[in-house]
Design a protein around this nucleic acid. Sequence first.
DNA 1: AGTAATCAGGACCATTTTAGTACCTTTTGC
DNA 2: GCAAAAGGTACTAAAATGGTCCTGATTACT
Lengths: 160, 160
Amino acid sequence: MLRMSKLTDYGTLILAHLSGADGDLHTAADIAARTGLGVPTASKLLKILGKAGLVTSVRGSQGGYQLARPADEISAAEVIDALEGPVSITVCSSGAGNCEIESLCLVGSAWQRINVAIRRALKDVSLAQLTGAPGTDYPLIDLTSAVVPEEQHLGKDGSH
Amino acid sequence: MLRMSKLTDYGTLILAHLSGADGDLHTAADIAARTGLGVPTASKLLKILGKAGLVTSVRGSQGGYQLARPADEISAAEVIDALEGPVSITVCSSGAGNCEIESLCLVGSAWQRINVAIRRALKDVSLAQLTGAPGTDYPLIDLTSAVVPEEQHLGKDGSH
DNA sequence: AGTAATCAGGACCATTTTAGTACCTTTTGC
DNA sequence: GCAAAAGGTACTAAAATGGTCCTGATTACT
């Protein structure tokens, strides 16, 4: 688990390079050369990161990419969201409590809750921490609400 | 991320069923019928779980499977290990610090450390918790050592 | 002993995902 | 206008995944 694709790793690498020189623009070719990735691949990744709002781009000649925000304001969760897309562990296609394998729903949702808890914790890990700078902040993952569903913390998330 | 394969979900489901009737033997066909899975698939999963030591099997006629240990002594980490296998985020094929893309190693290892931290936390979630019984224990994931490798908390984990 | 039930271990194939590439369009500086 | 550079889409090869099947080994029951 927590398997992440190569592209996510590459993407993080690109972000790391971008976070080095904060203000400057870098072309896709430049980034490709410095990361050792192929130009098409780097370009593809940069497009994805741009769509996710993690990098900003300037088009046209003399254009390029740069980090949309300082590296310590970008969370690991955002990076993953951008590069892996929204992930569901197991989709219960027929809606809650309505599928043929009812207990599978329950089990699946247990993993789901754990997943959410981890994701929430990853929000507290910044790109800056990820890319090397040690000793900035110490996040904590609380699996309590993940494992004990009966205690509903309403108002914690958007759905109320 | 934290995408887990269908088989892992199915496997958890099987373990959940097995944890219901603790002492009894269940045949693969029986489990398949009760979980709604195909017999070959359930059988395959049970073999995997058996190899991992999570279930024990009795061969021959009147044989079957049962949980190797009580459900609260099986951790979610073990379940994942068994069904997903050992996972490496990105394998630096040429050994530490020796690859062409050196910074990729660094970034990769950051994700790796986070992965390890999550896995460690998952050791504190039991199968019993996963399969429904609410309110048993409240684990906590500490990403500290994951992000800040220099500060070694010896004695914090199992080594005491 | 014979037979049927049942697990063990692979081998195999279809489908889906992933990774990488290519091509064409749009924007902008010179 | 031309060249540089991002934006978008589509395609292909390779790998992982999910599922099935077959053959052999082990054991209970008759």
